[in-house]
Design a protein around this nucleic acid. Structure first.
Lengths: 234, 234
DNA sequence: CGCCGAATTGAAGCCAATCAAAGGGAGTGG
DNA sequence: CCACTCCCTTTGATTGGCTTCAATTCGGCG
């Protein structure tokens, strides 16, 4: 999404709208958008679209999780983002996808064409707000990540967990359906380092893990540890 | 500008406008905006505004260079961006600046209040386009940087030089008024590593340096080296 | 000429990547 | 129900790149 170019990483626009209600999860918006298209089902591992595909569609995650990925010139995979229930993705500048999208867990998602979305946004200001909000958040998250690039593995993982906790907004326990490699490719770490860092955090009593689930025992400490990022939601 | 109701111009990032002419440097826009405020002069090192300042202004660089910086919780400085002649900065979500802005070289800049800018954008769609374009570019650059976080020092510096060359669009020779420390704080490297990397690039015949000026002897190689980033203009 | 800050160069230490191997956990077949 | 397999995770050992600390050189300016 929003691939090309190079823009000055400076502070984002200072709009006070969209309203906080629209900012939090977008459920409301989702309810309006869902009727726009069929809700498709994607089993884990399935590709929604591939890098280079011509596709003029935008997607909403109804349930499950989707990851968007790139392959850099030197063959390394980069995970651009994880998209949770209520979030949307796939909107790019060009009508050719610059990223691939794959279902991480069992996913249901709505696909909507660009033209339809345009019409919708024109008639429904709340949708337009949601789109704008999304762009702002993407910017903020990208900026966070660019700063995070110089952080330690522990700081990166702390950021990742806090960010995810805020987005699922379901208490301190969160599911991690993605692999260690996915997390590593997202944070710029090897899967081994991710694993080691999880172990360290567990030993320090900051988290506990049970299967695919992680419980954040001390979110405050994790947030402090993440280096005071999280200008966005958090 | 950026009104909730109708102003989301072509809902989402996929805009093929603003026209290339407006995209490249913004001279046209600058010509229109300049009359909006007095052109102030800032000697090197002077602070335009500081992190935490209440400020409802947006700035355009007429000549010179400005850097925006943050200080992370652990005391490290982060350079968010360098802003060249024709570019603007200072627009943030909150009415309190999240970054500081300092003149790097002898700078002239126009300051414009938010309300005035809003009025301007409402009446001049080209201005609105420029603002939208700016946000997109910012997002793109932030994403580039987040990917760049996992690159080697050489790749980072190559990216930095290519990016700057494209933005000044004045041949292969560019001025670097900022210090090695500034560059390092922007790329997430120490000043020593920046210096060492400059030396390496010089020894490899990719650049030559003369005082504050750098000449890119082989931009193609530098671009390839930067890891295939620079998806935009380049 | 001499001062001072920045840039360069040198040497040592640390963190994460890489290579390598062992330890689960889920699914399949016996 | 157990044994087996596959894949992911975890842990170990080594390597390499960047940071850090330290010393020297360069460049601007009084």
């Amino acid at each position: 999404m929003l691939q090309p170019g190079h823009a000055v990483p400076a502070p984002g626009p200072r709009v006070d709208w969209p309203p906080a209600s629209a900012r939090t999860t977008g459920d409301l918006t989702l309810a309006r958008i869902t009727p726009l298209g069929r809700v498709d089902h994607f089993p884990p591992g399935v590709t929604l679209y591939a890098e280079g595909d011509a596709g003029d569609f935008v997607y909403w995650v109804v349930a499950g999780m989707v990851r968007t990925t790139n392959v850099s010139r030197d063959g390394k995979r980069v995970v651009r983002g994880f998209h949770l229930s209520g979030e949307f993705f796939g909107m790019e500048r060009a009508p050719v996808h610059a990223s691939s999208a794959e279902a991480v867990s069992d996913t249901r998602a709505v696909r909507c064409s660009r033209s339809r979305l345009d019409a919708l946004a024109a008639s429904d200001s709340q949708i337009a707000n949601e789109l704008w909000s999304w762009l702002l958040r993407m910017t903020e998250r990208a900026q966070d990540l660019s700063v995070l690039g110089r952080a330690s593995a522990t700081q990166k993982l702390a950021y990742f967990l806090i960010d995810l906790m805020c987005r699922v907004s379901a208490g301190r326990s969160i599911e991690l359906p993605m692999s260690r490699t996915d997390i590593g490719d997202y944070l710029g770490l090897s899967s081994e380092t991710v694993s080691r860092t999880f172990t360290t955090l567990r030993q320090d009593g900051l988290i506990s893990t049970r299967g695919r689930y992680v419980t954040l025992l001390d979110p405050g400490a994790l947030q402090r540890m993440s280096g005071g990022l999280m200008r966005g939601s958090s």
